[in-house]
Nucleic acid binder design. Structure first.
Lengths: 235, 235
DNA sequence: GGTACACTATGAGAACAACTCAGAATAACT
DNA sequence: AGTTATTCTGAGTTGTTCTCATAGTGTACC
């Protein structure tokens, strides 16, 4: 029973790709429903209409199958981010879009994200795994926005790039987890985005000259203190 | 061969606890060396000097064993945090200590932290697992510091508590991962802490009314005024 | 001091799931 | 139609967690 309805107008390669896509799609569902260990290869094969051994012709092992699912997720995520910022000029509008897009996509596929975090974040093997590459191209979108902003003088250039990046994505990830734990309504996403962007702006945003803040006044304070010292000892 | 050298002055309960501790200690090493799946129950039992079945008298399953290891880690982490802030009054000194302590402990037991992230962060079952409780008491230390700071008017009260918390721990976790990936030297921890605290200060720090900044100018002004008074009365 | 009893330990093997592989089926090409 | 290359199959192998019937050990009571 070869099944797979060899549709007339299909080349062999097309059939293979269709089958691969079918397996990935079923795997996605099973992983979401049952987690990594709970998803059985037998069930995936069965629901995809192939024998168990066949799955192993397409994917080396269960891990590789999960990787394929995650790869699909990342591709959409990156594409969405790139397209979204194209129409935006303002730095904070861009960052806001990225935060919003990130949260929405991640919450929509939350279970997959959890699986990625669970299985592909060990530092020791991270760099050799494919999610590292996926993540690199995704993060590159954010990095470009930040670099532009620094060049335009809108963000401080005395904070290491990677700190800004970790601040952004770290805060968002934790906020997302809190959001899920609280089972909060979708509207709350705006609260998260607004707050994180606001904090980013206050934290690494550079005030326009003439309205200088924080670090710029410190020397003045120190100078006043030296003056006070002299007056103190004089009087 | 009952072994376990029934030392004369040991009550039965003591021997059990010692044995449990031995199993946990070996498990810790094995998990660190080989990861969760790589650590075999047979190896753990063997190295702890008990039969495989015996381990299951002390821990329901492999998961519970990892949980015990993580529990030990969290207890030390929480204790260290609580003791550390006792001697500190200043809000930012406290936060700085907490950040530093968090990073140092987590980096020291990084592999265990990874395993916790990998296996006990699924939102769906998180609340029923013990790490949730551990984490709750740990985070409570931070929360108290923040609440105090808000009451003292040193932090803004218009940012939700949980956002501040997620900002803090999220940024730190991501920065730690970057740190590990870069294989950065220990000194870099200071860079992380300084930057994150600085960003927190700028982001949620409250400037005294009429003054948008964080480094406080008021004391100097008051001091100068007192000097001016003395000069006035002297002349 | 001996005997009953509850507690603790053991390790062979049951259960289970990922993965393999020799052989069957199918498509492609001549 | 025949030949070859490709794809598929599923019963079986392997490896690991966890169980459980049996055996051992310390404690308490007579």
């Amino acid at each position: 029973m070869p099944d797979a309805q060899a549709k007339p107008s299909q080349t062999r390669r097309e059939r293979l790709e269709e089958r691969e896509a079918a397996i990935v799609a079923v795997a996605h569902e099973e992983f979401v429903r049952n987690g990594f260990e709970g998803a059985k290869m037998a069930a995936i094969a069965g629901r995809a209409g192939v024998a168990e051994g066949t799955v192993y012709l397409y994917f080396k092992n269960k891990n590789a199958l999960l990787l394929a699912v995650i790869g699909r997720f990342y591709q959409e995520l990156t594409r969405g981010a790139e397209e979204g910022i194209q129409d935006l000029d303002d730095t904070y509008a861009r960052l806001k879009f990225l935060a919003n897009h990130h949260i929405e996509r991640c919450l929509a596929d939350w279970r997959i994200l959890e699986l990625m975090i669970a299985r592909f974040r060990e530092v020791s093997q991270y760099q050799s795994d494919m999610p590292y590459e996926y993540n690199k191209s995704y993060v590159a979108v954010f990095d470009r926005v930040v670099r532009d902003a620094i060049n335009k003088g809108e963000l401080r250039d005395d904070v290491p790039h990677w700190i800004i990046r970790d601040l952004f994505f770290g805060s968002l990830e934790y906020a997302m987890r809190t959001h899920m734990l609280k089972n909060a309504p979708d509207e709350e996403v705006r609260v998260i985005v607004d707050n994180v962007i606001d904090l980013l702006q206050r934290g690494v945003g550079k005030a326009a000259p003439g309205q200088r803040i924080s670090s710029d006044i410190t020397p003045v304070v120190e100078r006043l203190e030296r003056i006070a010292d002299r007056l103190d000892s004089a009087v």
